[in-house]
Nucleic acid binder design. Structure first.
Lengths: 338, 338
DNA sequence: CTGTTAGCGCGTTCAC
DNA sequence: GTGAACGCGCTAACAG
């Protein structure tokens, strides 16, 4: 029962050598079509399943890529993992998931563990504690290719797959401009954080490109709760700011703003168009008509995996890492303004 | 550089045999303390790392458990995976994640793939298309223990780790009763679905236990959108139903109901207490004061993994599967009513 | 095109 | 307590 058939069993049954069987199963060109068929038939009959452990040991690969994220349950990362898993699955790779829980020490141990497990490649979104990358050199020393995603690696020689927050802000704002908006408010978060600063800069750049005057009164910095959107919008409207568009750096805040707009009998997007930068899908359950800039975690995961698989198949770690910057997708969910 | 040291290298360096080294590294009692120390020191010096592939091949294990979920990016599953990963990590196991995308055919292929990869155990939340379990027999045939979580397996002989929706409904309702509520409304979803039916039954049972008359007018069935909560609450209040408590089978719907309550200048929880069954954490961002019954995905993941690891260590698949039913946690977030 | 030989790196017999 | 030898299952290299 527990004696699983091996290539030797099927070789014996067919009166050929096990290496021929091996070649047949691997669809090697150096074996007759006829014997291939016989081997495959016998394999099916015996219920043969290749022992990956042995195969991998011999080939010194694992068909496995290791993934390290700060926390699996955060939506962005789980959707990234979704993309990673799908892409890896199609390429015949397994995915081992680990989480650093934002701790450098844990990250270090995980990397060592994955390297000891001989993963064929590594996908990492580093923890917030990670300031240097010495603990990752073990991968390089073992010729294991490494791709950073979402959170970039500061030093050169590594590949990154990132989201362009600047361009997201730019695109969202330009989208509103194309819709005919001229007085566009921006709800932003702490300017200490790169992501919000970049989105804000994208917003300003889009205005500049289209010769629209930037007005400081249109910018609302907050903690990006729903209430902040509601109150921010209220303030803007009460202060006679004739807003006709809103780009919110956060979806929940955008929902708050929408509530305020609707209460005042203004129409979306006819009177005021609105775009929210989206983190969580549930926000669209609560407000299905919200046009969003979606941080496509699965897209970034897919891209990072494709890049990594390329390195793996080439069996070489590029000296110069490349950096791929993805755009988030703007998903328009309400009718056009003009 | 790429020639990683093996036990032979360290054996040669020490003038002992590789089998002695192997024993020393495995802390076998049949080797001198002194040589153990020498071996360990040399291993550290050479930067030796055990080749798991070879070790696993020899021992015919993988130190890996396979996990199949419908979709990684759904919050419940990603938090379950979080719990699984943490528990497995502590026990020295790796976790391979796969997603069925709710497709039976994919699930079948994944199971076969994981079995072919000789995972030591399997954790499955079956796809919605899964009505029979023949495609899982391959695991049993290969003596791979299997634990179902969240979505239970209908046939006997398998272990399940589930959430008790009935008890959740019961607890939520009883919590409201303890708060002093006597006229408790219930917002429910399609009675075709077990989960909503069970929560509804829990609600009724709690009322019965405390001798509170069940009134059909207090029950609102809907698609559980935010608007459904808002409108449902509106109807209840307009029809002179003097509601003083609400148990919603969904958090978003509860948020809608809260909005309606607040608009009418009623206070939560003083005038109307409210509990929502929680799926997504962001709902608490939008409404931080919502008291919830939390489906703890990570808890269920942890429990399922512990059970599975027990089976793995015992090296036997129980003939009679056991079923563990977990309670979700009630998390009270607003001040007491009475 | 097929068979033979020789390991991959480790763990487990046997002996001594 | 330690060494020698073998095998896990598969595949690469070399013959023929």
């Amino acid at each position: 029962m527990n004696n699983k058939p091996t290539i030797h069993d099927i070789a014996k049954a067919l009166g050929v050598d096990s290496s021929t069987v091996s070649r047949a199963l691997n669809d090697s060109p150096r074996v007759t079509k006829a014997t291939k068929v016989r081997v495959l038939a016998m394999a099916a009959e015996l219920g043969y399943q290749r022992n990956m452990l042995a195969s991998n040991l011999r080939k010194n690969v694992t068909n496995t890529i290791g993934v390290i994220v700060p926390r699996i349950s955060r939506h962005f990362f789980s959707s990234a993992i979704q993309g990673i898993e799908e892409t890896a699955y199609l390429a015949g790779y397994n995915v081992i998931i680990s989480q650093s829980l934002e701790q450098l020490e844990r990250e270090r141990k995980i990397v060592e563990g994955l390297v000891a497990n001989r993963v064929d490649g590594l996908l990492i979104s580093v923890s917030m504690e990670t300031v240097d990358y010495r603990h990752l050199e073990v991968a390089k020393n073992n010729s294991i290719p490494l791709v950073f995603f979402d959170r970039h690696c500061g030093i050169s020689g590594y590949s990154n797959v990132l989201i362009d927050d600047f361009k997201c802000g730019f695109d969202a704002t330009e989208h509103l401009i194309f819709k005919g908006c001229k007085r566009i408010a921006h709800f932003s978060g702490s300017q200490e954080l790169e992501i919000y600063k970049n989105r804000f800069n994208g917003y300003k750049a889009a205005l500049a490109k289209h010769n629209i005057l930037f007005k400081n009164e249109y910018v609302v910095n907050s903690r990006l709760m729903e209430q902040d959107g509601y109150l921010g919008m209220q303030n803007l409207l009460d202060n006679q700011q004739e807003i006709d568009g809103v780009f919110s750096a956060n979806d929940v805040t955008a929902i708050g703003a929408m509530k305020c707009i609707k209460e005042r009998q203004l129409k979306i997007p006819e009177d005021i168009a609105i775009v929210g930068f989206s983190n969580e899908p549930i926000s669209q359950v609560i407000e299905p008509s919200l046009t969003t800039i979606d941080q496509s975690g699965s897209e970034i995961g897919k891209t990072a995996t494709e890049l990594l698989l390329e390195y793996i198949s080439k069996k070489e770690i590029p000296v110069e890492g490349q950096t791929i910057i993805l755009n988030s997708k703007l998903i328009e969910r309400n009718s056009s303004k003009k």
